[in-house]
């Protein structure tokens, strides 16, 4: 069941999306003046409930800071920071922002080339970014430049050459490593 054919309030959905992509985008665009940002309007990629803005990697921290300090709709709250691996297309770093006062959301994305996974750290904008960046770093191999403490967070500290959440990382091998499956065949641990 896709939204086009099944959802009864498709009109309401369209209105909501229209609001996102015009009104909020106008605000965001004003805040991001001087930065090459564009809203994601592609049907395949856009978010169902939030405005998504693409920013080139070089300008991402500038954009984030501008959004945090923007007049009116200041996105002062970093909800979440993560990465999505698109294999050879690169890795997306995704920032979910929220404005405590005006209660609006915006998602900032930047696409990093697969052979150059480096982006400036957002810890200077929000301290909240600290652990999220450490997690993204160990899981995807994205290097956050200027991070004050780039150790591994969840993984063992010396495990710096394995990036478990990348698509290329197999799931099954981990279990073999952990000794699962052995117990049942040999009848003992």
């Amino acid at each position: 069941m896709s939204p086009e054919e099944g959802a009864p309030d498709a009109a309401a959905d369209d209105a909501a999306r229209d609001y996102l992509e015009t009104t909020i985008w106008a605000e965001v665009d004003r805040a991001l003046s001087g930065i090459t940002a564009r809203p994601v309007t592609d049907e395949e990629e856009r978010s169902v409930i939030d405005l998504v803005v693409r920013v080139p990697p070089r300008e991402v921290v500038t954009a984030l800071r501008a959004l945090r300090d923007a007049q009116g709709m200041n996105f002062d709250y970093l909800r979440s920071l993560t990465a999505v691996d698109y294999e050879e297309e690169g890795v997306d770093v995704v920032y979910h922002l929220y404005s405590v006062e005006t209660r609006h959301n915006v998602t900032v994305k930047c696409r990093l080339a697969a052979d150059r996974l480096v982006v400036e750290s957002a810890t200077s904008v929000w301290r909240a970014a600290n652990w999220y960046e450490r997690e993204a770093q160990e899981m995807f191999g994205v290097r956050f430049e200027g991070h004050p403490d780039p150790r591994n967070l969840l993984l063992p500290e010396e495990m710096t050459d394995v990036f478990p959440l990348r698509k290329s990382h197999p799931l099954a091998e981990i279990e073999v490593l952990q000794g699962e499956g052995i117990a049942y065949e040999e009848g003992e641990l």
Partner: peptide, 9 residues
């Protein structure tokens, strides 16, 4: 699901 993304909180 159709392609797309969502941050549900």
């Amino acid at each position: 699901t159709p392609p797309g993304e969502i941050y549900e909180r």
